[in-house]
């Protein structure tokens, strides 16, 4: 291909200055970008308004496509259900009878638990559901793992609230716009959830790695190593996530902890539930007196 002519301004002073000016503007843009980066590092929610403004516009598109996909995906399901319903019925009846005994025992345990807690005067904070909405899109080109939730300030969603799905914790709300909110998923490389093992209640921190797994590190150096298959529940420490929501199952052991697979694989087909933060966030520290 012949070299393009328009980039060489020739003898025209005006064209030469124009080209030079465009370089100056670009250099200024680079400086501005560095300032922007520094700002977003120091104060991450600085650009919430801009980002959520765009998200407000894109959310209906994502939501519409997701709804269409759901509609198509539900057709084979519907047919399958129609034919499978009789067999399902018999199976469920058998299961019901089997589970009845278990239920009775669980009820008694629950009652006992309630009574004992009352004796100890422990007070469980209720965790109200703020909103139920779908995750509609995600940061699929980036190495960060964010998702967009189809509910925002108008539905009562605020930054810092935990988000969970039918199988367990999904993540937490980073920033909320009028009708959308940005959710940081569990697997984001900067996410961390305090957890405890169901087996013996040993506390640990489950932090995201950026891939599909979580890295689990015990909080204290006890020689009670993890086992493959250990189930981790949120511990409620830190006051953000309510306690006893399933988080992950240990799949691999490492030198100083374990790797765990989250129970919840977020999907646009399922609802996510936003809950109130377990404890209110502490007030921001007072600015130091000059």
């Amino acid at each position: 291909m012949a070299p393009p002519r328009n980039r060489r301004p020739g003898f025209s002073r005006r064209a030469q200055y124009g080209l030079f000016f465009s370089y100056v503007v670009a250099a200024l843009c680079v400086v501005a970008a560095i300032v922007l980066l520094a700002l977003s590092r120091i104060n991450p929610p600085a650009f919430t308004a801009l980002r959520s403004g765009v998200a407000e516009l894109t959310a209906p598109v994502s939501g519409g496509i997701a709804a269409a996909v759901r509609a198509v995906a539900s057709v084979p399901d519907g047919i399958g259900h129609y034919f499978g319903v009789k067999r399902e019925n018999a199976r469920l009846r058998a299961q019901l009878a089997h589970d009845h005994e278990l239920l009775m025992r669980a009820r008694m345990l629950s009652y006992d638990n309630h009574r004992l807690k009352h004796l100890l005067e422990l007070r469980d904070r209720s965790t109200e559901t703020v909103a139920a909405a779908r995750l509609i899109s995600s940061s699929a080109t980036s190495t960060r793992r964010f998702a967009l939730l189809n509910a925002g300030l108008r539905q009562g969603v605020r930054g810092g609230q935990p988000v969970s799905g039918p199988h367990g914790v999904i993540g937490r709300v980073l920033e909320a716009g009028p009708d959308t909110a940005r959710v940081m998923l569990l697997i984001d490389p900067e996410s961390a959830v305090p957890v405890r093992r169901t087996r013996d209640g040993v506390p640990a921190i489950a932090s995201g790695r950026g891939d599909t797994l979580l890295e689990v590190r015990p909080v204290s150096l006890v020689d009670k190593p993890f086992k493959i298959g250990d189930v981790l529940l949120s511990s409620g420490t830190g006051g953000l996530y309510p306690p006893d929501i399933p988080v992950a199952r240990v799949v691999k052991l490492t030198r100083d902890g374990a790797l765990a697979m989250p129970f919840e694989q977020p999907d646009t087909l399922d609802y996510a539930i936003v809950q109130r933060a377990f404890f209110r966030a502490p007030p921001p520290p007072a600015p130091p007196a000059p």
């Binding site: 370089y23 200024l28 843009c29």
Partner: peptide, 24 residues
């Protein structure tokens, strides 16, 4: 040359990268 900056700004708004990363 500078046209990359506004396009990058828009990309930052929708990509989940920190603001300014694509601009730069």
């Amino acid at each position: 040359v500078w046209a990359a900056a506004p396009f990058g700004l828009f990309d930052d708004l929708v990509s989940g990268q920190p603001m300014g990363s694509a601009v730069l």
